[in-house]
Each structure stands twice: as structure tokens, then as C-alpha cells.
Design a protein around this nucleic acid. Sequence first.
RNA 1: GAGAAUAUAGCUCAGUCGGUAGAGCAUCUGCCUUUUAAGCAGAGGGUCGAAGGUUCGAGUCCUUCUAUUCUCACCA
Length: 488
Amino acid sequence: MLRRLEERQHILDGGVNPYPNHFDVSHFSTDIIINFQEDVHEPVSVAGRIMTIRKMGKASFFHIQDSKGRIQIYLKKDDVGEATYDTFKLLDIGDIVGVKGYTFKTRTGEISIHAEKLKLLTKSLRPIPVAKEKEVDGEKVIFDAFSDKELRYRQRYVDLIVNPEVKETFIKRTAIVSFMRQFFSRQGWLEVETPILQPIYGGAAARPFTTHHNALDMQLYLRIANELYLKRLIVGGFDGVFEFAKDFRNEGIDRFHNPEFTQVELYVAYKDYNWMMKLVEELFYQTALEVNQSDVTIFLGNEINLKPPFRRLSIIDAIAEYTGKDIRGKSEEELRFTAKDLGLELDPKISSGKIIDEIFGEFVEPKLIQPTFITDYPTEMSPLAKEHPSQPGIVERFELIVGGKEVCNSFSELNDPVIQRERLESQARLRQRGDEEAMIIDEDFLRAIEYGMPPCAGLGIGIDRLVMLLTGQDSIRDVIFFPHLKPE
RNA sequence: GAGAAUAUAGCUCAGUCGGUAGAGCAUCUGCCUUUUAAGCAGAGGGUCGAAGGUUCGAGUCCUUCUAUUCUCACCA
């Protein structure tokens, strides 16, 4: 770096600005290569970062990388003049340059640009970790790639420069979100924004991040979900609302969890969870076709097929199928016995619903590889969901499990304000008993639904996990630009 | 929170039994006007994650700490 600082000064002393203000670009690297015609020397102007250099005495080759890809540049002293060629000799891998010239094909058959003008656009002071590539039997072999995960996450900008497949993943992430946004908007539903700073957090069971507003001298929370605000908007008369939301949960970090993550939540009036299942099937299928041109993807080592319909299985039937235990109508004591019989150690304080969830999470969920809707959860685990009209104690709820992981959660929303109040009060009692994740009573939310919320179906999709699914990444850190790490 | 592994040059990695710190790429100098992991000749580059300890002597052995990775636990 010291050497490059000197070089920067050297360039300055030579009357050249190493950081000029603009450069006119006419083409992207990849477009030049795609549209190349033999015997046509098309004039082009490109800009990008120098990624390889092969210097010879009076002529040189180098590759520049722009936002789309790479292209080789041929620079000859006779063509650009001695001054430019001397400046070029001072350049390093990592510097950003602009090149004006014309297209041609080299003796070895690579489509390249024959430079007529070269301009330094940005001097790079730190060496980038260059990986060398070689083609062996038509396949690219990369030598000494920048692969240290810690460095890649801490210096994502470097990761993006030198590892093109990383860039692809993030481009796909944006494509997925854009497609979903269009998909919802085309139905006439409204994309909205609701508060991230909330005086009362709710809509999910999780520990929040806490902050403080100075002027109001009050505690605020970063939202763990936006469910209760979107429902207020359904009360307000919108038929469908959705929000791509950053949510924050003050919990552990692993390859499926980041403290801040993205969810899309959607609420549609007059619909129920059966309708929502169909929507989710269609959404996943079409999104896959849009971004992958295929309904098959590899997720956590398994080939996943996203062609509808997805299997539907109630949580009770799922447990019966995978453990052989019929738990329908069983009392808390019987459930505890069943769990013990299966070899599951349980906290003696937890109740029926939680026991069912534990059995499901331990013996069933990891085995659900192909997309499966698990439906009809115990009411107790779902304080915001509406009960099944014919099955007491069971709510109209589903989760979509893919590759053994939950990717979305949905229910017919509870809109009876009296029952909703009872459910939240029972949550408050759990909280008093020390359940830190039990919900807090949000009086304004209750007031809103007391005015009347139409029947409605709600959905939450974990965008990070969906992106993992559709890009074949096994860690949430590989689909978030700047995943959370401890400070250096 | 528990266990395992890792930490050596800008990057990717070797380093044997405890005895002067190594390679490739990158960098620098020279040569080279169609190269592509360019080539040839030479050179520089290190507080071996941090702090202690054992030892005549520690990259190597021991202790503690820090960070990361993986697995498990937690997280509907």
C-alpha cells in the first residue's frame, strides 16, 4: 500500500489526475462479446477494473471487469504513444481504467478491444486478492481463490470483485424480490410501509432489540414483525396490503438466522388459509421459473421440485406418519408420555401445544424435504390465528416446509376482538410466568379490530430462506450482503 | 451456551523430532509488439492471532484470552 501511495503521488506529479470525475462508457464487456462480428472493427468505450495484466516490452494485454463481466484489452505502444504506455506501466491489478478503441479477435481467438486511448479513472491503493483462472477441458479452474469466509463477509466489496458467482446470487436475490413485488401488485394489493420503531412489539414470539427516543424520553423496540400494523390497515379498508420488511430478533446467529432479516408479509381481506396455500404454490413456482427458468432447485443437498400442487398434511397426521403415534385428542399427560416414549426430553413446564411442536420439530420437520404444507396447528401456539369452525382447539394455519426448514407461515386471521383479547391476556399470563417470548397486549391493535376487521388471510415469507432455496446457498450469510459478525 | 477445528507474507497454503521463516500467485527491477495460470533473469516482503509459561532455544509443547468456521443446543 505504501508503494501504491507513492505511485499515486508519482502519477499526480506527472500531471495526471488519478481520480478524474467522469468517463463516457458506450458498451458493457459482455455485450461486446455477444454482438461481435468478424471483420467489423466496432469503436467502443468501456470502463472497469483491471483484473489481469500481461505486460510485454512494447505491447500488453489486460482484462478489465465491468458490472457485467470481463473483456481483454490489447494495448500497443505504437498506437497509444509513449506517454500513455509509460502511464500504463505504472498501473496495477485493481486500478479502474477507461479504454477507447475498437473490437477485434486475437490470434488465439479471444474477442478483445484494441485500445487507442487509455485513461486512469481510479487508482487502487490496496492489492486485491487475484485468483488466476485456467481453462481445462472447457472448464474453468480457479487457483488460490479468495475463499476465507471471515474475510469474504467482512470485506464483501472484495468478495464481489473477485468472486463473480457471489454477485450472481445477489442479482438473483433482487430479481426474486422484484418478481414477488410485481406478482402482488398485479393483484391490486398495495405495497405499504409501517413503523420499524414500535412502542410495543408484537406479531411474533421473539426477543426484541430495545432503543430509546430522546425527545419523547421513551423506550422503543425494533420490530420483530409488522403483522399488527398491516392488520390495522386491513381494518382501515384496504383489501390487500404487503410490505417487504426488515425485522429484528435479538437471538442466536447461525446459518439460518441473522439478527436482522427480511420478511414479506401479505394480508388479503375475505380470504382464508386454503386460498393462501394456492397462492403460495403459484408464487413459489412462478418465481422459480422467472429467476431460474426451472422449477427444480438444489437446497441443502437435496433436489427440490417446486411444481404445484404441494403436499398438504395436518400436523397430527404428519406426526402419525413419521412416528407412528396417533396423538389426536390426547391430553397433556398422554402427550408427555408419547414424547417420552419417542425418547424426547421435555421441559416439565411446557403445555400440550408446545409438546406437539417439539415432537414435530424433532421427528417430522427435518424429513420434509419436498415442499409440504403442514396445517391445522394447536390454537395455543397461534394466538393471532382463527380457529377451525369444526375443530375446536385447532387453528386454520399452515407452514410451508422445504428442505426440512420453515419458509413461510400463514393463517386465517383471528378477527373476533373478544377472543383476540382473551388470547393475548393468556399470553400475558405466560409472560408473567417467565416466558420471555410470549406476546404483549397491544391495546391499540385490539381497539382497531374492535372497529371490525374483515375476514382475512395473512402470510409471512422469510425472504432470506427463499433466496437460499432458489440460489442453492446453504448459509443465510451467503444471501445477505453484510451479515452480522463480531467487530474485528 | 457446549464440543471440534482453524489463525504463518496482500491472497492460497506448506512448515518433519523444539534448533537461522518457506512455496505459488501478487509486488519491485531488467528483457520481451498477439498474451491469457504469459515467459525468462533477479529482488524485496513476516511481532507466525494476543498475553503468559516450560526450555539453553518455541511457528512447533503448556495455560489463558480473542476471532472465525463447522456441528449441536437455543430460536414457532
